[in-house]
Write a protein that binds this DNA or RNA. Structure first.
Lengths: 331, 331
DNA sequence: GGTGGACGAGAGAGCGCTCTCTCGCCAGAT
DNA sequence: ATCTGGCGAGAGAGCGCTCTCTCGTCCACC
């Protein structure tokens, strides 16, 4: 009662195993009537190729590792980044008949595991989702001679093709919007400085403030809602006269709005707020949040394309996608 | 420059391939000094077993399909259910050295794909996450003679072991809480009736109302925030005198709170609201949401255990986990 | 009519591993 | 000294597939 093999199909169709294989793999050098006979045998037996046997000889596995290297706090949070990326990547890869093997690599132990797994040739390539600068995984995997791409620029300079959005440009657009609407004392709640997104968005903020001759007022959060609320309270303590704040992600911005409300500040009348990410919840805050949208779906699609290109020997040039200011009512 | 094989390891250690294989697989019938020699050869060569070759002969793959069968609207939404389940399942399976192959099965085309893939012996077993009653996948996969478990009770009676939370009991607890706090006209915003969770939670609501001699007032949403807002407006139109509403999930409850605010109703003074799920955002609504907590992480862990038991020939009895009323300020 | 070429189909090797079967060796019993 | 038993290690088959090489056939052209 085991699964039928190619041998069985060939026998039933009265041809050789090689010919049956040709039909299965869609080669054209098979006469139509033979092709039909084989196809019929396949249907009758319910034949499905054994992938292990196939990849043993082809040296391909048709599966791709999607490595999520991030502490649980962030993956578990309300931030839809990871689920969106995972989902989009699956859709894109399934469209080209590749399987997605999901691997989480939060601990040092799991790092070793992932490294061994990828080194072991279980997958044809890997996609890395890691925003942490201290993360040892990107350089480690880059050494493995397996095609790898990264979602987001790796924090340490390492020769991995990547796809990122224009964090600096987006932050600049956000702060410029505040400057142009006449705000004078513009603070920021920055993200973690060991993450590339945190760094770049702070850089964008600083760039514009420098050019417009304003003083920078900085608090640092960790991209969670709660840390945004804490940072906002701290900023209000440091500089009660601030009239605007650029928050490095929307989740922290939601927390900041909460602190502003508790402190009796009106948004945007007293304090203007601009976030970053344009998560779903940004539409539903009170008031709705002005923010920077970056296209997660397109970025993911671009990442998948980049990896597929790499398989074909493509150059693997980094891709930077533009961001967009979405003006709602908070600024 | 290809990867070292077991043959190479054996040659370097001066033993046969069979002996090297014994060492790799941790068999005890190998003399210590030979074991050491082989281990050293493995380390020096950086040998990693070829999984394709191994599973060709063992007929195992050590990977498990995680099939998410749900329309994009829900997976994409803010509902953290899927990302939590996916994450927890990964952690649990990685702990026992199994790989997670993620498959999305939203369209009919992808259904066929998933079915073929699982039938093709690419995985040792499958975990199904599907809340849709109309979903043809569970019965189809159940026929494949591959160990399968389901997250949530399959809507059509089909012989698949499953793990679910006590939706009926949870809904009963929620509505009983409203009854006991003296509410008279208790409405509900039900979930989609083609989903088991939607059905069961409505059943729980009806059970308690029947027993407490109250009239049921029902609107139906689709588990999204927006549909909750719409349903709440509709309920207020149908019965302006309602003084409580049990909402079948928190996301819709958030929408309902919004509609209540717009209609000038105070919560909980005029209308009490109880949700279901206890998502993160439930803590941050205005006022914080009273809701039913069900343990997603434990449910996922139980699902994984159930599948592993199945591999060992376990009985595969369904597991139902209890829920818990979390009283905050909305009711 | 003979030859060359093109093309379709089969034979068979081999991918890297596991596992059964066999064999050799040594210890202990007779 | 011979035999038996047990255990550790090797030989070799075979998992199911792909792919190269070879061969046979048929047609076209000289």
């Amino acid at each position: 009662m085991r699964r039928p093999t190619l041998e069985a199909v060939a026998a039933r169709a009265g041809v050789s195993r090689a010919t049956a294989s040709r039909v299965v793999n869609g080669q054209t050098t098979v006469a139509p009537h033979i092709r039909d006979a084989v196809q019929q045998a396949i249907d009758e037996l319910g034949y499905v190729p054994n992938s292990a046997a196939r990849s043993l000889v082809t040296q391909r596995t048709d599966s791709i590792a999607l490595v999520v290297s991030e502490p649980p706090t962030r993956v578990f949070s309300e931030d839809p980044l990871f689920s969106t990326v995972i989902r989009m990547a699956s859709v894109e890869l399934e469209a080209v008949n590749k399987q997605v093997v999901l691997m989480l690599a939060s601990s040092a132990k799991s790092h070793a595991r992932v490294e061994r797994y990828i080194a072991g040739g279980h997958v044809d390539g890997a996609m890395l989702i890691s925003m942490h600068g201290a993360d040892p995984l990107p350089p480690a995997i880059a050494r493995l001679r397996v095609p790898v791409v990264s979602y987001g620029r790796p924090a340490v300079p390492v020769d991995i093709p990547y796809v990122d959005n224009d964090n600096v440009g987006g932050a600049e657009a956000a702060v410029r919007h505040l400057v142009e609407s006449g705000r004078r004392r513009i603070a920021t709640i920055a993200g973690p400085q060991d993450m590339i997104g945190g760094q770049d968005r702070l850089t964008g903020y600083r760039n514009v403030l420098r050019d417009s001759d304003r003083r920078s007022i900085v608090a640092v959060g960790d991209f969670t809602r709660e840390s945004g609320a804490v940072a906002m309270r701290q900023l209000l303590g440091d500089d009660p006269g601030l009239d605007a704040v650029f928050v490095a992600n929307d989740l922290m911005a939601v927390g900041a709005l909460q602190s502003l409300r508790q402190a009796g500040r009106r948004v945007p009348d007293d304090v203007a707020v601009v976030g970053f990410d344009d998560i779903e919840a940004a539409k539903y805050t009170e008031p709705p949040l002005t923010t920077i949208r970056h296209p997660i779906a397109e970025q993911t699609a671009a990442m998948v394309r980049l990896l597929l290109d790499l398989f074909e020997g493509g150059p693997g040039d980094p891709v930077i996608l533009p961001t967009e200011l979405v003006v709602r009512e908070s600024a």
